[in-house]
């Protein structure tokens, strides 16, 4: 059963990672958000009749506009609102696009003074893949040191689990993000950190409960399988109680948040699922028969 479970876990993980690799190869890696692609930034002052949604939908209908579009409110007064729209692809140079925006937003309201396009510039990527190297090195170091602590305190098997499970969970999370073509932004690292730290937490909790149960349960009265079963029950209930609470918070966030937040919350949610899966596999999949 345990070997079977471990085998299935590894097969699922390998399948997800392979599928992500294939999809990543076909599409050229992750689906990159504006932080990694750059685009055109347009600053527009409009009369307040233009709501945020209005502005976004009219902007996206413009000829040549495609890819990601982020709209940020810069200033809002009683008479005007200034938006900074970042558009991944405008299909033309910035001057022509500025004219297109001017014609769209000034003609319709016939109020050329109220609608002003301040600036229209193309901007390059804010981050590159190189910028992710240091955060990943930091993560590896931050996982390795606690794993060494666990190794010294509880033995080699636990030490390896404490390092391998968070790494696998992070890789799985990234694979799912790649497969689902979720746009990545600079906030990707936050989701990776959340995934690996929650996996580490879950693994340590599970392993410690298991160790405690193994040490303190009389083998005269309980078989190894019963001990494992009790530990499993306890770990499940502890982790699920906490996960349930944060799932509520995540669902709340997903329902009510603005679009830019949604991507991050989805990555957080995917990360939590991967963390649970890997932690469970690490705690119970590798258990030795006693």
């Amino acid at each position: 059963m345990k070997k079977g479970f471990m085998r299935v876990s590894l097969l699922i993980s390998a399948a997800v990672i392979c599928a992500a690799a294939v999809i990543g190869f076909i599409f050229g890696g992750f689906s990159k958000g504006l932080d990694y692609t750059g685009g055109t930034a347009v600053t527009v002052k409009l009369p307040p009749e233009n709501t945020y949604d209005d502005f976004c939908s009219r902007l996206m209908k413009l000829e040549g506009v495609s890819g990601n579009v982020n709209v940020i409110v810069s200033e809002k007064t009683k008479d005007t609102v200034i938006y900074i729209a970042e558009i991944e692809e405008t299909g033309t140079d910035s001057e022509s696009f500025k004219k297109l925006v001017e014609s769209e937003f000034t003609d319709r309201y016939n109020d050329k003074e109220a609608a002003i396009v301040f600036e229209c510039i193309k901007f390059g990527p804010r981050s590159s893949v190189k910028d992710l190297v240091l955060p990943f090195i930091a993560l590896a170091a931050a996982l390795l040191v606690p794993a060494v602590y666990v190794l010294i305190r509880h033995g080699l098997r636990y030490g390896i689990s404490a390092f391998a499970a968070p790494v696998l969970a992070s890789v799985l999370m990234l694979a799912v993000v790649m497969m689902a073509r979720i746009d990545i932004s600079r906030n990707l690292m936050s989701a990776v950190y959340l995934t690996s730290a929650s996996t580490l937490l879950a693994v340590i909790t599970g392993l410690l409960i298991r160790t405690y149960n193994e040490k303190n349960t009389s083998r005269m009265k309980s078989t190894g399988e019963e001990i494992a079963k009790n530990a499993k029950k306890q770990v499940r209930s502890v982790i699920l109680a906490v996960v349930l609470c944060f799932a509520i918070a995540l669902v709340f966030g997903l329902i009510f948040q603005a679009e830019l937040m949604r991507e991050l919350l989805i990555q957080f949610a995917v990360g939590c699922v991967c963390a649970l899966f890997c932690a469970y596999a690490a705690v119970f999949g590798t258990a030795e028969e006693k």
């Binding site: 040191v145 606690p146 410690l208």
Partner: peptide, 13 residues
């Protein structure tokens, strides 16, 4: 153990 692991993680980062 739980707090030591988290503290170590935090310090290293």
């Amino acid at each position: 153990d739980i707090n030591a692991v988290l503290l170590l993680m935090g310090i290293v980062m």
